[in-house]
Amino acid sequence: MKKVLQDFSGRLLLIGCGNMAGAMLDRWLAAGLDPAQVAIVDPLAAPRAGVVQHASIGEWQAADGAADWIMLGMKPQQLGDVADVLAPLVTGGVHLLSILAGVSLADLAARFPDAGAQVRILPNLAARIGAGVSAVATLGDADERAIAALLGPLGQTVTLADDSTMDLVTAFTGSGPAFVFRLIESYAAAGERLGLSADDALALATATFGGATALLADSGEKPGVLTAQVASKGGTTQAGLDVLDGDGQLAALLTNVLRAARDRGRELADIARGEG
């Protein structure tokens, strides 16, 4: 298991610790991060052994008020209120990390101009088990080695030259697990409609999707190559593929799904800037 502490040190403050930020924190703690290095500002977050939790930024400031790394994990719509209180405290070499959908590096720089670096991270929920993917873009004098060490235990990391495509990445990988879960759910429901029990259908669907993605990742092949290894001309697989591929409907549907999620990210950015 990768150890965060190998190249990461300092005090980490999480502003908001819901599903995604909580998944990241739990993984970091499991990978060796000392709970004494962490503080949370979130009155509703589940408690973690050894991690100090505060109800507000003011309470944290009164108790300690020191952090080298601050991660924004609340709702994007709360950015304005949080920045009004937090910005005066983000100075010097403090790294500001953000997992807020739609909030650009330029937005962060405008709200937190005295931060040592702004770091925009787009993780996904599989980070909870170290199997996620995180896109990252930075602005300012970022400690790239420490950032890589911090993100390493979460899974794969893709470093972007800038954050111009981050709204699409948010839809593609951030929202992506939910879309996959819905596909598995629908696949299982189809099996149930055709005669499988609900439990058997879900178990078989989960194993089928999991095995297929694991094989794809391990093989290094393109998906089409593996598809051809399963399908044979005139066979059962090809009959199903003919339905999936008919009139390009599947590609069009998924394009529309990603477009809707991407566009919502842009709307959230406008709201965070007070323009929505």
Rank of each mutant, 00 (worst) to 15 (best):
L160Y: 02
L160K: 04
A161I: 10
D162E: 06
D163N: 08
S164M: 05
S164W: 07
S164I: 06
D167F: 09
D167S: 09
L168V: 15
A171V: 04
A171L: 03
A171Y: 06
A171F: 02
T173N: 13
G174Q: 01
S175W: 03
S175F: 01
G176A: 08
G176K: 03
G176L: 09
G176T: 04
P177S: 07
A178V: 10
A178P: 11
F179S: 08
F179I: 09
V180Y: 05
V180W: 03
V180E: 09
F181R: 07
F181L: 05
R182F: 05
L183M: 15
L183R: 09
I184N: 04
E185F: 02
S186Q: 12
A188H: 00
A189D: 10
G191R: 08
G191W: 08
E192G: 12
E192T: 12
L194F: 14
L194K: 05
G195P: 11
L196V: 01
L196M: 14
S197T: 14
S197E: 11
A198W: 00
D199M: 12
D199L: 10
D200W: 08
D200V: 12
A201E: 00
A201N: 02
L202M: 15
A203S: 11
A203H: 04
L204C: 10
L204F: 14
L204H: 14
A205V: 00
A205I: 00
A205W: 00
A205C: 00
T206I: 03
T206W: 01
F209N: 00
F209M: 03
G210L: 08
G210K: 11
A212F: 12
T213P: 00
A214V: 02
A214P: 08
L215A: 04
L216G: 00
L216N: 00
A217C: 03
D218N: 02
S219H: 07
S219W: 04
G220C: 02
G220F: 00
G220Q: 01
E221M: 09
K222Y: 08
K222R: 12
P223S: 04
G224P: 11
G224R: 10
V225T: 11
L226H: 01
T227K: 13
A228D: 15
Q229A: 13
Q229T: 11
V230T: 01
V230S: 06
A231L: 13
A231D: 14
S232P: 08
K233L: 09
K233R: 15
G235A: 07
G235Y: 06
G235W: 06
T236S: 13
T236K: 01
T237Y: 04
T237E: 06
G240P: 08
V243C: 04
V243R: 13
V243Y: 03
L244G: 13
L244C: 12
D245E: 14
G246Y: 07
G246E: 14
D247L: 09
G248S: 12
G248R: 14
Q249C: 04
Q249Y: 03
Q249M: 10
L250S: 13
L250I: 14
A251D: 10
A251R: 10
A251T: 11
A252P: 01
L253A: 10
L254Y: 12
L254W: 15
L254R: 03
T255R: 13
N256L: 06
N256K: 14
N256W: 04
L258R: 12
L258K: 08
L258S: 07
A260R: 11
A261L: 04
R262H: 11
